[in-house]
């Protein structure tokens, strides 16, 4: 049986779990990812120190890893500090049924918008429009074109980051993209999907 005092802790827990409403800030995740992708790899010393602190390997293991890494660093005079090139990134879009992600070619200076393809495979009589946080949810901003095979498609230039979007059908019905993950943070109360756009 739960006494009154346990109910009080439960009430504290409910209060603290309710804040903050981080999910409402879709831009925060995009900011984090942009920072992560742009961040330089830590120095060998930093990584050795982090390895020492990390709980995923034992203290003895961490010490061994750190020692070997440092030894290798001294021997090779820093040539081990470069990261192995990452595996090629496959560009996927909503049409694949996977998490819609697009990658931009590497640029210098300002971050360029990334051409991102959207495909709608559903019933629409007259029109389908792409609406989202990137175009102010305006139904006239990004219309889709109907292909001969019945699919509707558009390629829109999107800034890197996380975007919430939906399709407006025949100017009245707003539906999420069935091929993409749903947004946990409905923008302006609308149901939406998530697209991640990466610059690199």
């Amino acid at each position: 049986m739960i006494d009154e005092r346990d109910l009080l802790i439960e009430r504290v827990r409910t209060t603290l779990r309710g804040s903050p409403d981080a999910a409402a800030d879709a831009r925060a995740v995009a900011r984090v990812l942009t920072t992560v992708w742009a961040s330089p790899r830590p120095s060998l010393w930093r990584r050795a120190l982090d390895a020492w602190r990390m709980p995923v390997v034992s203290g003895l293991g961490a010490a061994a890893v750190a020692g070997l890494a440092l030894l290798a660093g001294f021997v090779t005079r820093g040539t081990v500090g470069e990261r192995t090139p990452e595996a090629p990134l496959a560009a996927t879009g909503p049409a694949t049924g996977e998490f819609p992600v697009q990658y931009a070619a590497a640029t210098t200076g300002e971050v360029a918008a990334v051409p991102t393809q959207f495909v709608f495979d559903g019933d629409a009589k007259e029109s389908v429009a792409l609406v989202g946080d990137f175009n102010g949810w305006r139904p006239d901003a990004t219309p889709l074109t109907r292909l001969e095979n019945g699919l509707w498609t558009v390629t829109a230039p999107l800034p890197p980051g996380r975007h919430v979007y939906a399709f407006m059908i025949d100017g009245t019905l707003v539906v999420a993209d069935p091929r993409a993950p749903r947004a946990g943070d409905a923008d302006y109360g609308r149901e939406g999907s998530v697209v991640m756009v990466f610059a690199r």
Binding site: S19, A22, V29, L33, A87, V101, Y103, R162, M196, F198
Partner: peptide, 19 residues
């Protein structure tokens, strides 16, 4: 090396982390 997976991790864990 799957950036898409990392993005999903951040997306899933950001609210709890910030809280």
């Amino acid at each position: 090396g799957d950036r898409q997976a990392f993005a999903q991790l951040v997306d899933a864990m950001y609210p709890r982390s910030l809280r």
